[in-house]
């Protein structure tokens, strides 16, 4: 095995890190931390249905398609609200955002 970088990661270092991982992962999350990490996502839905769509007059017969200049839509959603490239993202690393099912 080659030396240099590989030498830097010693068996002792690995053992220390694994020991720490075991200790951290088996400690209970505080209620505060658990709350902070959770937020509500959209519940996944089954997509195979046997129902018909909204009628005759919608998308199916529309001739709107992407053919160069025929396209008439511009993005008009939340993308307009994002910050300029220079501002800080304001988002820390290793925060979890979980999907939580709504019942």
């Amino acid at each position: 095995m080659k030396n240099t970088a590989s030498q830097a990661i010693s068996a002792a270092g690995l053992a220390l890190a694994l020991g720490a991982a075991l200790a951290i992962s088996s400690a209970p999350l505080t209620a505060h931390a658990a709350d902070n990490e959770k937020c509500f996502g959209v519940a996944m839905k089954g997509k195979n249905d046997c129902a018909a769509g909204p009628g005759t007059t919608c998308a199916g017969t529309s001739k709107v398609d992407y053919q160069g200049n025929a396209w008439k839509f511009v993005p008009q959603g939340t993308c307009a609200q994002t910050a300029s490239p220079t501002s800080p993202s304001g988002f820390g690393q290793l925060e979890a955002f979980k999907e939580v099912k709504k019942s």
Binding site: C39, F40, G41, Q81, T82, A83, S89, G90, E95, F97
Partner: peptide
């Protein structure tokens, strides 16, 4: 998901 303000996000 409501976890942070979109105005603060630099894409």
């Amino acid at each position: 998901q409501g976890a942070l303000a979109i105005a603060g996000v630099d894409p």
